[in-house]
Design a protein around this nucleic acid. Structure first.
Lengths: 349, 349
DNA sequence: ACACTTTGTGCACACGTGTGCAGAGATCGA
DNA sequence: TCGATCTCTGCACACGTGTGCACAAAGTGT
């Protein structure tokens, strides 16, 4: 009967097949397998036994069609190999799994057009919701985006950029505050900030957190200690280079500790210290931001602010599920965590 | 009309809606949208215009049901955060994307039961094929596995373990050969091997590659230089510890270069060299295996054998597509690549 | 013995798409 | 002008599942 059919499709049985074998209608089979009270005990058992014998496996595609709900989430990432997104994905996987959802994943490689295509593909597949990490969609895509009739949750991006969507982000200001307070607690009094002018909003928030923490400790706020490298000055240099070039001026200013915009800047700062013979953490303490993989492998291992990446993924699923239940969407702001390693210590003096 | 319906479901139009609006049957719409030659030019354009106006988005779920083909792949990984699997996933994503397939991903966390459940879930979703990386399924699952009527391709595991499935692996022996030939080319004559007895098959293959390369160069094969640490001796030590403990004996044996079973063993060997004041690579050259993230961050950065991880993912999709077209399945053995970094140099003598 | 309730089952439709086949209408040839 | 051919469209069914409703058979009460 299954002549000419590829081998792997042979013998897939449907409730109709079971119905025929058990001498009942397919409706009865459907109800029996769902333990409906409408079906007599005897029939139910007979049907179930037959289903097991025939190796019946329900067809989720057909179910999705009839239920108008696929039980899937689509996850759009810019890169599949970046540890940051990997953690977000793990968070989504965990929470989605618990909710009985399967997860589609695709990478946009930072190309807006590709990202839009992925979202549209997910929409065609009728995923129940879409989670986008680090979206690059500009207002150019507003119209195409407006056609998507599926809840979209943004991760690691602020919702005000894209009205109508909900976002899960983490509290950058609180993270900076955490880092600087750590330095204060260690006893530092002359604390610098090494910022990047080309990350406008982020930098402003982290600078603010730095200033707040200092003010809270009633420490002086020497403007020379808060060095934000201007975008024009940065040019095409990578973050590490910027850190390495900017650090010496801070050291000359007499700081005993520096909070860096991110881990790569901190690596540059570390290299500069080595070059100048300033020992870390004995003479200078350094704190990074992001907790990249490399922070652990540096010598000394870098104290840094970690984004709750896994939690961001989980939270995104949570928001999505709320939206699916018809509840109001909400924005989530998660608190960062300080990872204490060996690049910070009390000041030597 | 859509009263009480969740907001995000409003206004999803089907070909039936378009048909009604355009005054034709749904069959005509379906054909028009597929540019069927059966439909007149005028009707086709009219239908297409109407579809665009109504923001029609085809329902892939319904298509899957009718076509008996979902256009999806399921990928099972033991961990979503491990860089190795991330690369495999990226390879699958790329090749699947090109073939118009969407990718499901889920993590098994090394639990066989969870892995089996994921496979069964993918089966229910009627994925066209399943790719499993580093499967932990034992023969206990043979029966449940036999029920899966979907092609399964194993990555990073040898097919002989699980008859009936196809596998994509990489050539470990060739990798070892590559590493050792590199050392020979640099001028080394006394080359050691530091192996792990608890990875039976892998170790045997790498040892074999080592021996072949030496034989090929007509170099002597001092048994004292090939140290395979016995499983009993290893106990619960991690790979790095084993490398650190075993290295001194090799150095005493007078080797100028060591090929290590993997990167972690090489890290241990490096630590041992530091402890004994043997400079790497000036006095001793070290080669690792796997190309873990850390290999890049070591000082000196580690020369190592890289598995073609991305290519493994792509190849797995290729095998799967062949299987779908009814072709014979095939096993693929990929060639590794040597990544030259700074832990190898010509011998000092 | 008859009406009424309870229990169990099947019919028929829905979900959205694709397609074999029949047939209506137009065009063509003689 | 009439039959034959061609062009286009719709009917009806399929894919696999779930469910409202009708209805048959059995049980209950008077």
């Amino acid at each position: 009967m299954s002549q000419g059919r590829p081998h792997h499709l042979e013998g897939r049985s449907s409730i109709k097949d079971i119905a025929q074998a058990a001498g009942v209608s397919h409706s009865t089979v459907s109800r029996a397998l769902h333990d409906s009270a409408l079906i007599s005990h005897a029939t139910r058992e007979r049907v179930k036994a037959m289903a097991a014998e025939m190796g019946y496996i329900p067809n989720a595609v057909a179910r999705s069609l009839q239920a108008q709900r696929s039980g899937t989430v689509g996850l759009v990432l810019t890169s599949l190999t970046d540890p940051f997104f990997a953690d977000v994905m793990a968070g989504v996987d965990e929470s989605a799994g618990k909710a009985g959802l399967s997860m589609f994943v695709a990478a946009s490689h930072n190309e807006p057009e590709r990202e839009m295509e992925i979202i549209e593909t997910f929409h065609r597949r009728r995923v129940d919701g879409i989670i986008v990490a680090a979206s690059r969609l500009t207002s150019r895509y507003h119209d195409r985006l407006a056609r998507i009739r599926v809840p979209i949750v943004l991760v690691n991006q602020h919702a005000e950029d894209s009205p109508g969507f909900h976002a899960v982000a983490f509290d950058e200001k609180a993270g900076a505050h955490l880092a600087v307070r750590h330095l204060v607690t260690l006893g530092h009094r002359r604390i610098g900030y090494l910022g990047l002018g080309n990350r406008q909003r982020s930098n402003a928030l982290r600078l603010e957190g730095y200033q707040d923490a200092l003010a809270e400790a009633a420490l002086s706020l020497d403007p020379a200690w808060a060095r934000v490298i201007a975008e024009t000055e940065i040019g095409t240099q990578d973050d590490t280079d910027v850190g390495e070039r900017a650090m010496p001026a801070l050291l000359e200013g007499g700081v005993t500790a520096v909070f860096c915009y991110n881990d790569r800047v901190a690596v540059g700062a570390l290299l500069a210290c080595r070059g100048l013979g300033a020992e870390v953490p004995r003479q200078v303490s350094l704190v990074g931001f992001d907790d990249l993989e490399l922070a652990r492998w540096l010598s000394p291992p870098l104290t840094t602010v970690q984004q709750p990446r896994l939690a961001m993924g989980s939270a995104a699923v949570g928001v999505m599920l709320d939206l699916l239940e018809g509840q109001e969407g909400r924005d989530v702001l998660l608190s960062p965590v300080l990872v204490r390693r060996a690049s910070t210590a009390p000041p030597s003096a």
